[in-house]
Design a protein around this nucleic acid. Structure first.
Length: 878
RNA sequence: GGGCGUUUAACUCAGCUGGUCAGAGUGCCUCCCUUACAAGGAGGAAGUCGGGAGUUCGAAUCUCUCAACGCCCACCA
């Protein structure tokens, strides 16, 4: 920057890009796989390649950037690997929508043609979110950016399939799966969202063959009766058990189907009699297997009726078929009644339509043997969850894990590396490269579930299995930062994959972020349109303020109600920091002050105090960040900067800057710079842009850019109780004077005299601060005395057993003063009562630790003294 | 049905291994545009820490219980 002075206000829109480009140009973000320094690595949870930056991303990636930037400043070999996920089903849906809108006939497209459209689309839109992350300030190693369908990555995915297949963990099964009729593909259990819906319960009357008797059956899905192959009752149900073994003629279809007895049926529910559709319901499927029933698939892939149903229903959608079936049953007099009924319906997460249980050939991965070691890794704390209560959720899922349906009937994704011999499809070939004579073989049409590629992310980004170089340096990663909503989809599976393929953990710590909600508690989501556009916020508040504000309001593991005025806290803080820095800068006597070494100075108590407080803040920030308490660390920096440095030390420093003692002025300037640089260092991970900008004005010749400057650990052994106590006394006196002035409505420009009685051993301390107290309290004359008569018409206060008199001739309002003193007396007597009670309790004195008892005694003494003085002063007024 | 979480000032929330007179920001009241900052400064009002019980010398904090709200998982046609 060519400027030598900080601008009057911080113009983030100009400076953010400048610094980001500067960091990139200096290669600060790059990890070094040949370094022998301690490494620190994170892999980004790859956003969907179709994605746009949301507030969720802001939260998630700011946290990662905080960890990464701190580690970098600690001098570690840092590597944050970015990338995107091909998001098979989500992306394919978008591409299909686009092609349809362009009037392109999907049916006429070959697989390759479709894929070339998809890649075109990816090239066009795939980079958006990456650029958005750069705007956010993420210090990722962009040279290592990965995409889950990159050539190398794809090879890793196929490799993993082949390995698992060869171990016998992958099998093909003809099973009921969750079927999304929109994407015409199987989906996993985790991709099914259950929604409560108001539906109906239809009661149908079925005639029993060769009999006049009937059975009434309740169903929520009338259309599936076209695929019924049995009726089931409980074997012990006295109403029906004599019917077991008989048959009924299925109305509308004419098929004769048996009445069977099965424990699954709950006699209490509905009519106690269930229609069984083995090909379209998971429970019925199991009944069907137990009783060797016929499995009749009645639907096409889009959930319309197929040729296995009577002609008149064929090609009807499931909704139309339901209407038709109900109408026809009613016409035949077989509709007994219709009840309202609320039930949970599974919806496809992507297609947002009810799923079908659908019979099809799919590839499955056996999970039991993978889950066991992964469970152990977390429960033995080799991997730590933050907050830890997520371990229970993890355990529950892992202990009830089911085989994973990994095949999808899509085109965008990793095509399953299985080939069938054309002349005999029962012969299969499984390998990464495919068969030698490809003309005789046909590859499986399906692709893999997206998560069956992203579960390899922590090591596949490093060219596994081809190269070890980066893996040796950057694997296992240190931390994973992600949302608890993908604990099953992704986190659990990465742990399994890490153990399976590399026999190691993929990360040491997992931090689960908060879920962001709007003011009314609704989850931010694209479909609700209630998520603010982060870029509007960056513009309005600045990226640093958005990052800082978001961190401040994101306590560990709780949902967060997001609102813009939280970001104002961040913006105001950045403004405060900017102005404090500007103030210090404009008061520097000489430029070379920035090179002053504090060790060469003999500092006064206020200087020692603020340096001490900075050290304590650094210790606190380190401690909280180690525990992933980002909000607490942010708060510590905020409070130190605002309350200690700006509110007190800068005000004290003014008395130095404008005083006659030039040496003190210089010392104070040096201390201000030291403290500001400390603040900038601690704040940099949260607010990288503004801190780097201010730093550039304060750095000296040996300083590097802030992003790579040394982190402050804090020094546990450094303490200065004397300085703390002294400044504490100073603050109490000044505050007492200010309170009196304020409550007596003394105008700002009117100076008051202050007398302090009973100074005793405090005299030297106060004398050392005299000019500061006079300035901050707007005092004309300060008189210190051990014994002195109380002036008339004076307001009083008690500070550390000293009486403070502020004579206010003509200004004092007796009633107000009496009220003020009475209030304080009441407060004190309340506390005194409690303390006395405590100390009178023999059990307390005997059993509580000495220091606690001692403290209570001290409290009693101090408060009694203050009480007596306040009372005496009050009495004099009456 | 099973599990997890939340309940602290008017609002949004901190408060960690039980022990300073329970904190912050916003809002509210009073005063101040004092040459770093009105996106600011000084002062102030505001809380039986969801209800109840228990453990303890001592509970916002630990245990139990009840209530309200939220989330996750499972699911009977």
């Amino acid at each position: 920057m060519s400027k030598t002075k900080l601008d009057k206000s911080y113009n983030w829109n100009e400076l953010e890009d400048h610094w980001y480009q500067h960091w990139l140009a200096n290669d600060y973000f790059k990890g070094d796989s040949n370094s022998n320094k301690e490494s620190y690595s994170i892999v980004i949870p790859p956003p969907n390649v179709t994605g746009m930056l949301t507030m969720g991303h802001v939260l998630n990636n700011t946290i990662q950037d905080v960890l990464i930037r701190k580690a970098r400043m600690e001098g570690k070999n840092v590597c944050w690997i970015p990338g995107t996920d091909h998001a098979s089903i989500a992306t394919e849906t978008k591409v299909v929508t686009m092609l349809e809108s362009e009037g392109i006939d999907l049916e006429s497209l070959s697989r390759d043609e479709f894929l070339s459209h998809a890649w075109e689309w990816k090239e066009k839109y795939g980079g958006i979110i990456i650029n958005q992350l750069k705007k956010l300030g993420c210090s990722c190693d962009w040279d290592r950016e990965r995409f889950t369908m990159d050539a190398g990555y794809s090879k890793a995915v196929l490799e993993s399939f082949v390995q698992l297949y060869n171990k016998g963990l992958i099998y093909k099964g003809h099973r009921l799966v969750n079927w999304c009729p929109v994407s015409k593909s199987a989906i996993s259990d985790e991709e099914v969202i259950h929604k409560e819906k108001n539906g109906k319960l239809w009661h149908f009357i079925y005639p029993i063959s060769n009999s006049d008797d009937c059975l009434t059956v309740a169903t929520t899905r009338p259309e599936t009766m076209l695929g019924d192959t049995a009726l089931a009752v409980h074997p012990e149900d006295n109403r029906y058990k004599h019917l077991i073994g008989k048959t009924i003629t299925l109305p509308l279809v004419g098929r004769k189907i048996p009445i069977i007895g099965d424990d699954y049926v709950d006699p209490e529910f509905g009519t106690g009699c269930v229609k069984v559709t083995p090909a379209h319901d998971p429970n019925d499927f199991l009944i069907g297997e137990r009783h060797s029933l016929e499995f009749i698939n009645i639907m096409n892939e889009d959930a319309s009726m197929n040729s296995n149903v009577p002609n008149k229903y064929q090609k009807l959608s499931r909704e139309e078929a339901r209407k038709a079936v109900v109408g026809d049953m009613k016409n035949e007099g077989r509709l007994d009644k219709v009840e309202d009924y609320t039930n949970n319906i599974g919806y496809s997460e992507r297609g947002n339509v009810p799923i079908e249980s659908y019979l099809s050939d799919q590839w499955f991965l056996k999970m039991d043997s993978l889950a066991k070691p992964a469970l152990e890794l977390v429960n033995s704390n080799k991997i730590n969850f933050h907050p830890s209560h997520w371990v229970k959720t993890y355990n529950h899922w892992m202990k009830n894990i089911k085989d994973w349906c990994i095949s999808r009937q899509l085109r965008w994704g990793h095509q399953i590396p299985v080939w069938y011999l054309n002349s005999d499809p029962s012969q299969i070939h499984v390998s990464v490269e495919g068969p030698d004579d490809p003309d005789n073989w046909t590859q499986d049409n399906d692709v893999l579930d997206t998560w069956a590629s992203s579960w390899l992310w922590p090591f596949a980004v490093h060219d596994w299995p081809n190269s070890d170089e980066n893996l040796d340096t950057f694997y296992p990663t240190n931390a994973l930062v992600t949302g608890p909503d993908i604990i099953f989809f992704w986190v659990a599976r990465m742990i399994m994959a890490g153990h399976e393929f590399l026999n190691d953990i993929p990360f040491k710590d997992v931090y689960f972020t908060s879920i962001l909600r709007d003011e009314t508690g609704k989850k931010f989501s694209k479909s609700l349109g209630n998520s603010p556009d982060p870029f509007d916020l960056f513009k309005e508040y600045g990226t640093d303020a958005t990052r800082f504000g978001t961190m401040l309001m994101a306590p560990q593991g709780l949902d967060v109600l997001f609102s813009n005025d939280r970001l104002e806290i961040g913006r105001n803080f950045m403004n405060k920091l900017w102005n404090a820095s500007r103030f210090v800068q404009m008061n520097l006597d000489e430029e070379d002050i920035i090179t002053t070494n504090l060790d060469e100075l003999s500092l006064d108590l206020p200087e020692k105090w603020i340096i001490n407080r900075l050290n304590q803040t650094a210790l606190k920030v380190n401690k909280e960040l180690e525990k992933f308490r980002f909000n607490e660390a942010a708060k510590a920096i905020y409070e130190f900067t605002w309350s200690d440095f700006c509110d007190w030390y800068i005000e004290i420093a003014k008395t130095r800057f404008y005083g006659v003692d030039k040496q003190k002025a210089k010392e104070s300037q040096a201390v201000c710079i030291f403290v500001i640089k400390g603040i900038l260092t601690l704040l940099h991970p949260y607010a990288p842009f503004i801190t780097e900008e201010i730093w550039s004005y304060f750095k000296n010749d040996t300083d590097k850019d802030l992003i790579v400057s040394p982190w402050i650990k804090g020094d546990k052994s450094h303490q200065d109780i004397n300085a703390d106590d002294s400044v504490d006394l100073l603050k109490q006196i000044v505050t007492a004077v200010r309170t009196i002035r304020s409550s007596m409505n003394v105008p700002q420009d009117k100076k008051a005299n202050v007398l302090i009685r009973g100074v005793g051993e405090n005299r030297s301390k106060i004398e050392a601060f005299e000019n500061i107290i006079i300035a901050l309290g707007r005092i004309d004359k300060l008189t210190l005395a051990d014994e002195i008569e109380k002036p008339s018409q004076t307001a009083t206060a008690v500070v550390q057993k000293m009486e403070l008199f502020v004579p206010l001739k003509g200004l004092i309002d007796l009633d107000q003063e009496m009220e003020r003193l009475s209030k304080r007396m009441n407060e004190l007597s309340g506390h005194l009562e409690n303390t006395e009670k405590k100390l009178a309790n023999k059990n307390f004195v005997d059993r509580a630790p000495d220091n606690v008892v001692k403290h209570e005694n001290q409290k009693l003494q101090d408060m009694t003294a203050e009480f007596n003085l306040v009372k005496a002063n009050l009495d004099m007024l009456q």
